[in-house]
């Protein structure tokens, strides 16, 4: 029976290093299975966050052979068999222990996105939306909040100081979901430009590459949002058109503290 060596980062906020665990290779296993076998055998104290093991809870995010991935969705047979499999915690977030990181930065950013503010209901008390109106937003709602996109984004991965004024791909996508919502009445574009760092994104598309839900975060979320900000702030012809046609929504300039209900 062939064997596989798992090279797993062990440590806490004071520091750490890789430790090797050599195990028999079983057919059909994913990286999370290997971590569980290590916990059941040589290292019962190995810390790892996981829940559904089906790629839907977004808990088991880690860096496998250097790339941000879900441990439960990474098959062992798609990794090079002739070298150790490296598993490290997400680089962008503070480590708690071993493979577990503190992702609370993301929850704080989520609070800064102004919530859904629908227009008044119809006369019969309902909201009506055509299927063509809601189709676009469905893609964004596939997000499982694994935060791999936040982890891989070099704006905060390599520049900790940017966390104070950059929302990150997951939340720029969330902003696009709200901005393009057929019922929403808020204009978040100035906020995105001035406070949430939309211009910090330089479209290198790593967020799209690592998304386990295959959401086109850049093409369908961030770039359309950038174009909307161009409409509002950098396009004199669009500005003139709004003035002549008197079309504008009141801009939201401050972040909110309440989480969005939508």
């Amino acid at each position: 029976m062939s064997e596989v060596t798992m090279r797993i980062w062990r440590g806490d906020p004071t520091g750490g290093d890789f430790e090797n665990y050599t195990l028999p290779a079983n057919e059909g296993e994913v990286v999370l299975d290997m971590v569980h076998r290590i916990q059941a055998g040589p290292a019962p104290d190995l810390a790892c966050r996981w829940n559904c093991k089906a790629g839907k809870c977004g808990s088991c995010s880690a860096e496998i052979n250097g790339m941000p991935r879900l441990m439960c969705m990474t098959r062992m047979d798609e990794l090079p068999a002739d070298q150790p499999v490296t598993v490290a915690p997400m680089r962008t977030f503070p480590v708690i222990r071993d493979l577990v990181t503190d992702v609370s930065f993301n929850f704080e950013v989520a609070k800064r996105i102004p919530s859904f503010a629908p227009r008044p209901r119809e006369a019969d008390g309902t909201y009506r939306m055509a299927q063509m109106d809601v189709d676009r937003g469905q893609e964004f709602r596939k997000c499982i909040e694994c935060f791999l996109c936040q982890d891989v984004c070099h704006v905060i991965r390599d520049h900790e100081e940017n966390k104070a004024h950059y929302a990150g791909p997951r939340f720029l996508m969330r902003a696009m979901e709200l901005e393009s919502h057929p019922l929403d009445t808020r204009d978040r574009r100035e906020l995105l430009r001035k406070e949430l760092g939309l211009a910090m994104c330089n479209i290198t598309k790593c967020c799209t590459e690592v998304c386990p839900e295959h959401i086109k975060i850049t093409d369908n979320g961030i770039i359309p949002l950038k174009e909307r900000v161009v409409d509002a702030a950098y396009d004199p012809i669009a500005w003139l058109g709004r003035k002549i046609l008197r079309r504008s929504r009141p801009p939201v300039l401050e972040t909110e503290t309440a989480a969005s209900p939508a």
Binding site: P13, D17, E63
Partner: peptide, 11 residues
Amino acid sequence: PVTLGGARGGP
């Protein structure tokens, strides 16, 4: 409260 900085994950 979120503390920025701190030990980052991995080497």
